[in-house]
C-alpha cells in the first residue's frame, strides 16, 4: 500500500507523538512495521529451513536410525513444553488485545504471564538437556547408544539425529531467550504507559515474533519427539 492510499486528517496525524519523522502518518508507520516483521519472519523460516532440509534428507535416508534416536527423547517433557508454548501464545495474543483496547494493567499482566511461560519452557528444556547428558546422549560430550536398535539403524546416524536435535532445539531455545529479552522491554514500556490504542506496534510485532517461535516448536515436536514414540511401547 502506498502513501497515496492513505487519508488521515491532520489532527489524527499530529495526535500521534510516536510518529517518526520520515513517515506521513501512523497508519503508514504501522503498515511498514508489520510488513517489516513479516519479511523478517520469512528470513527466519529460511534460516530454520536449512536445518529442516538436513533433517528431512537424513531422515529419509536413515529412517530407522532416526526413529531409534527419537525413542530416546522424553516425549512427556516435549508434550508439556508444547502445551506451555501454546498457552504462552494465547497470553501473548491477549496482551496484544489489551494493548489494542488500551488496558495497561491487563496488558502488563499478560505480558508477565507470557514471560513466565517462556521461562518455564526454557527450564523444562534445561531439565531435558540435563537428562540427555545423564543418559550419555550428548554427541559432543559423551555420546553412547545403548537404546533401541531397529533393523537398519546405525550408531553414527543415531548420533547425527542427536546432533540435529541439539542444533534445532538449541537454535529454538536461543530464539526463546531473545523473545524473553524482547518481552522484558515490552513490559518495561507498557509499565511506563507507552502503548496506547493508537500506538502499540511494538507489542503487536513482539507478538508476531513470539507466535513464530511457537510455530517452529509446533513442527519440532512431532519431527523430533513423536517420530519414535511408538517404539517405546
Amino acid at each position: 500500500m502506498s502513501a497515496a492510499d492513505i487519508h488521515l486528517t491532520d489532527a489524527e496525524q499530529h495526535a500521534a507523538t510516536a510518529l517518526q519523522h520520515h513517515f506521513d502518518n501512523m497508519e503508514q508507520q504501522r503498515v511498514a512495521g508489520t510488513l517489516g516483521m513479516w519479511v523478517f519472519l520469512i528470513t527466519e523460516i529460511m534460516f530454520f529451513g536449512g536445518l529442516f532440509t538436513a533433517y528431512v534428507l537424513y531422515r529419509t535416508l536413515n529412517a530407522a536410525s532416526f526413529a531409534a534416536g527419537s525413542s530416546g527423547l522424553n516425549v512427556k517433557m516435549g508434550a508439556a513444553n508444547t502445551v506451555v508454548l501454546i498457552c504462552s501464545s494465547l497470553t501473548m495474543a491477549l496482551a496484544v488485545f489489551y494493548a489494542q483496547t488500551g488496558s495497561r494493567r491487563m496488558q502488563i499482566i499478560f505480558l508477565l504471564v507470557t514471560w513466565a511461560l517462556g521461562a518455564t519452557f526454557l527450564v523444562v528444556k534445561g531439565f531435558e538437556y540435563a537428562e540427555k547428558f545423564r543418559d550419555n546422549h550428548v554427541p559432543w560430550l559423551n555420546f553412547q547408544w545403548e537404546g533401541k536398535m531397529p533393523p537398519g539403524a546405525s550408531v553414527p546416524s543415531i548420533r547425527m539425529f542427536y546432533w540435529i536435535y541439539f542444533v534445532m532445539t538449541g537454535l529454538h531455545a536461543f530464539h526463546m531467550i531473545i523473545g524473553l529479552g524482547m518481552l522484558g522491554f515490552l513490559i518495561y514500556f507498557a509499565w511506563r504507559g507507552r502503548y496506547t490504542p493508537e500506538y502499540h506496534a511494538p507489542v503487536e510485532l513482539g507478538g508476531l515474533y513470539w507466535h513464530f517461535v511457537d510455530i517452529v516448536w509446533i513442527f519440532l515436536f512431532p519431527l523430533l519427539y513423536l517420530l519414535g514414540a511408538n517404539l517405546t511401547h
Binding site: 529460511m46 534460516f47 538436513a54 553414527p156 546432533w163
Partner: peptide, 27 residues
Amino acid sequence: PVIAITILLVALERLAHIGIFDPRLGG
C-alpha cells in the same frame, strides 16, 4: 539466511564434528 545456517553448520562440524556433512560420520 540459508547461507547463514550453512556456515553455522560448517563451523559446528569443524569445532564439534557433528557429522552433518562428514561421510565418516554418516553425513
